[in-house]
Simulated assay, not measured.
Amino acid sequence: MGEVYGEQVRPRRRWGRRLLITFIVLLLLVLGAAFVADRVGRSYAERMISDKVAEQVTNQKATSEKPAVTIEGFPFITQVARGRYDEIKIELANFSGPAGNNRTIKMKLLDVRAKDVVAPLETIRSGTGDIVAGTVTGVGLVDYAQLVTLVGQPGVKLAAKDGKLTGSAPVQVLGQTVNVTGTAQITVKSGNVVQVRFSNVSAEGLPDNPIVKGLINSYVNKLAFDLRVPALPLKLTVQNVEATDEGLRVTAGAADVSLNSSGL
């Protein structure tokens, strides 16, 4: 009678290893698909906002390069699911616009940050409805070369000193040329108007008498100017202006702003 051998059974360990590998592969595929969907959805929303901001810039008779929009935070999908976004960055390079009296004000970069943004899922999916930012802040720089042109007086130099705007210019007084220096007071007015007035004026080498002071003050009054900041997108209005080494830094703000509206 011949020997009977039992049927060989493949070890369970190999099957478990194969199942684990299969699970990992499927997981990677799912994660890859989620990442692609995340990027596609984010890009779509960024393009939509960029197009609307570009329309606003055009409607305000201003110009800039195509707005570069970045939705901060990852993953995008989870933000879509809850309909809230922490921050959206909007950069408008080479922004310029009319500033009255046939003048144009230019900013190398208008850096806009929208925070506490609410956008329902249906709005992202269909492109209809409003994407509303709780607060929007924009920062741009007006260089001193443009400001000197606004002053319109020969020899004027503008600079920042200890966080304040200072001005200097050569002045003819009593037959001699002296350098007059002063510190400016910057005041933000309605209508995006920045008022610049000089005070605390000094001039070395001149006698301290009413006639000389009157001549200097008369000249200083000519240094005063108003900077009319161009109409900004997203309903931004000027809130603060400060002197920096490169120029005047203009900070504007707004609240409850629609990011995907082409209106003013």
Results as ranks from 00 to 15, higher is better:
residue 33 A to W: 07
residue 44 Y to T: 13
residue 147 L to T: 07
residue 138 G to Y: 03
residue 179 N to E: 15
residue 67 P to D: 05
residue 173 V to T: 09
residue 168 S to F: 01
residue 73 G to F: 11
residue 71 I to S: 03
residue 143 D to Q: 10
residue 138 G to H: 00
residue 216 I to F: 00
residue 57 V to D: 00
residue 69 V to W: 01
residue 252 A to V: 04
residue 71 I to E: 02
residue 11 P to D: 15
residue 84 R to Y: 15
residue 5 Y to F: 13
residue 17 R to L: 13
residue 201 V to A: 09
residue 162 D to H: 12
residue 167 G to I: 02
residue 192 N to I: 01
residue 63 T to S: 07
residue 254 A to E: 10
residue 15 W to R: 10
residue 115 K to I: 14
residue 72 E to V: 14
residue 211 I to P: 01
residue 204 E to M: 14
residue 6 G to N: 11
residue 249 R to G: 09
residue 55 E to I: 02
residue 144 Y to C: 13
residue 169 A to P: 06
residue 134 G to H: 05
residue 89 K to R: 10
residue 131 I to M: 02
residue 254 A to L: 07
residue 125 R to A: 13
residue 225 F to A: 01
residue 98 P to S: 08
residue 155 G to W: 10
residue 109 L to H: 02
residue 127 G to N: 02
residue 159 A to W: 15
residue 184 A to M: 01
residue 198 F to T: 05
residue 126 S to I: 03
residue 231 A to P: 00
residue 111 D to H: 11
residue 170 P to M: 11
residue 105 I to F: 03
residue 221 N to G: 14
residue 178 V to S: 06
residue 19 L to N: 05
residue 182 G to H: 09
residue 246 E to F: 08
residue 201 V to Q: 06
residue 202 S to I: 13
residue 20 L to W: 03
residue 34 A to S: 12
residue 181 T to L: 13
residue 247 G to P: 00
residue 245 D to G: 11
residue 198 F to R: 05
residue 236 L to R: 12
residue 20 L to F: 03
residue 250 V to L: 14
residue 20 L to I: 04
residue 89 K to G: 03
residue 196 V to E: 05
residue 134 G to V: 08
residue 204 E to D: 15
residue 68 A to D: 11
residue 208 D to A: 03
residue 9 V to N: 15
residue 76 F to H: 11
